[in-house]
């Protein structure tokens, strides 16, 4: 049962990443070069729909709880920095690499997978030293709404508003520059 569910979720995940073109090197790198905002648009629209879905599911009582990743702001940020360097170098992240493998890309399948396994092993070896440092920064609130002490729906609406502005700005920048994502594979 849970294997079927995991396969189904993965299938949709991979399907959507491929259809959005995120299995391409240039797509992912060009978001950092302000040439192609597909990654940003996909991420923001998924965030908006996902946060509405999660809050609706909690409010309607379909699920009692959701898994919230731990917040330790300095660690999250520094980890993000290293992650960003890796993403700009390789042109994929651990999710889109699966989409790239599905498209038949051998650099993703062999070099990327080996690199990820090696990286995971390195982090495991560093873990005993890093853990106490990271633990010092643990945050008291699990979610932004708890942090600010406001209703989660207000944060959801705020997020949607900011995402809308960012997407509008991205579309406008593309129109102005007129050299956007028109180089298809």
């Amino acid at each position: 049962m849970s294997i079927v569910a995991a396969l189904g979720i993965g299938f949709c995940f991979g399907w959507l990443l491929e259809k959005a073109g995120l299995a391409r090197y240039d797509r992912v790198v060009n978001v950092f070069r302000f040439r192609d905002f597909t990654v940003l648009k996909l991420l923001l629209s998924a965030l908006v729909v996902g946060s509405v879905g999660v809050q609706a599911s909690l409010a309607l009582g379909f699920s009692r709880s959701v898994p919230v990743p731990a917040t330790f702001l300095a660690g999250n940020f520094v980890g993000g920095l290293i992650f960003g360097v890796g993403m700009a170098l390789s042109g994929f992240c651990p999710g889109t690499i699966a989409a790239g493998i599905g498209e038949g890309r051998l650099d993703y399948l062999i070099a990327g997978s080996l690199g990820l396994v090696a990286g995971a092993w390195i982090f495991g070896a560093l873990y005993p030293r890093l853990f106490p440092l990271l633990a010092r920064g643990a945050h008291t609130a699990a979610t932004i709404s708890q942090w600010c002490g406001v209703d989660p729906w207000l944060i959801v609406v705020l997020l949607a508003e900011l995402a809308g502005i960012a997407c509008y700005a991205a579309e406008r920048a593309r129109r102005v520059a007129n050299r956007g994502p028109n180089r298809d594979a």
Partner: peptide
């Protein structure tokens, strides 16, 4: 470079507590 980048994303993701999908998105 792809292998190096991949290793960096794995280490960075480990420190941050997730990747684009599991931390940023979920």
């Amino acid at each position: 470079l792809a292998g190096l980048g991949a290793a960096l994303t794995a280490v960075g993701g480990g420190i941050a507590g997730g990747c684009t999908a599991s931390l940023a998105l979920s």
